[in-house]
């Protein structure tokens, strides 16, 4: 009998339209009544709180009350698959993209992806960055051939929206209004706090290529851009302590 108990319990916990499982009581020989709802509420409330805590940018953009309304059907349709709650919510960006009431906020799924990337960067492994002068010390002909290794906390998030501006505006009242331009976001973690920086589209392409193992020259070619964005990108990566090693073929 207990072999099937938890399947019924699980189904009724996630679907308030279902009746509680059979053969439960109040301990005094009476019906279970509202007592099953305590577990139902605990599950819904704890998972909803996890969404609120885990997606602070989305919460700022649409307000906590609205996020609670969206989170409830989400947690019922997509309960966690892992007891590490700091990893919960991978399915939330796509869920938002298909959720009609926020369809006019096309940038919301990317804001949720940014929150996920910040969280995963926060928990990523520690790493020691290369000395800032290490790139400058390379012979001029060696730099184009260098391949870079990056800190495990580094994340790159491409977006068709001004995602960094949107993130900043969500968290800083004084920040300027988002500009009408697509921005990729680079997340690095100097110390323990993940830090998002905006990248231009050419820089985003270069960064993608570098992450995929291209050398500096190949990454530059991948971007189809001029010299300045590459120099700026390398400077940013060094300043944020995001480069952990570089390999130059002899």
């Amino acid at each position: 009998m207990t072999r099937v108990l938890q399947a019924g319990f699980r189904a009724a916990l996630l679907d308030p339209a279902l009746p509680p499982p059979e053969a439960l009581g109040d301990g005094r020989g009476g019906p279970v009544g509202r007592r099953f709802d305590v577990y139902r509420n605990n599950v819904a409330a704890s998972l909803t709180e996890a969404v609120l805590e885990g997606f602070p940018t989305v919460a700022r953009l649409i307000g906590e009350t609205n996020l609670r309304r969206i989170a409830l059907p989400f947690v019922r349709a997509h309960p966690p698959r892992d007891p590490r709650m700091f990893r919960y919510g991978d399915a939330f960006p796509d869920f938002l993209a298909g959720f009609a009431p926020v369809a006019q906020m096309g940038y919301l799924p990317d804001a949720a992806r940014l929150d996920l990337a910040l969280r995963s960067s926060y928990h990523a492994a520690d790493a020691t960055p290369v000395a800032p002068d290490r790139l400058a010390a390379l012979p001029q002909e060696a730099l184009p051939l260098a391949r870079l290794r990056f800190a495990p906390a580094l994340r790159l998030l491409p977006s068709a929206w001004p995602l960094h501006d949107i993130w900043r505006k969500a968290h800083e009242a004084e920040a300027p209004a988002p500009r009408p331009q697509a921005q990729d976001v680079l997340i690095s973690r100097p110390g323990y706090d993940p830090r998002p920086d905006p990248l231009s589209k050419p820089q985003g392409l270069m960064m993608r290529a570098l992450l995929d193992g291209a050398n500096v020259s190949e990454a530059h070619a991948a971007s189809d851009g001029d010299e300045a964005p590459l120099t700026d990108l390398l400077g940013l990566l060094l300043a944020r302590g995001a480069i952990t090693d570089l390999e130059v073929p002899r």
């Binding site: 207990t2 938890q6 699980r10 916990l13 996630l14 605990n42 599950v43 698959r81 007891p83």
Partner: peptide, 22 residues
């Protein structure tokens, strides 16, 4: 308690009956 069934983690400490089997 139990908290996971059929790969869904429910983030709550759920009760079980006290039988020889459990």
């Amino acid at each position: 308690a139990w908290s996971t069934h059929d790969s869904a983690f429910l983030n709550d400490l759920l009760p079980l009956p006290y039988t020889g089997e459990t």
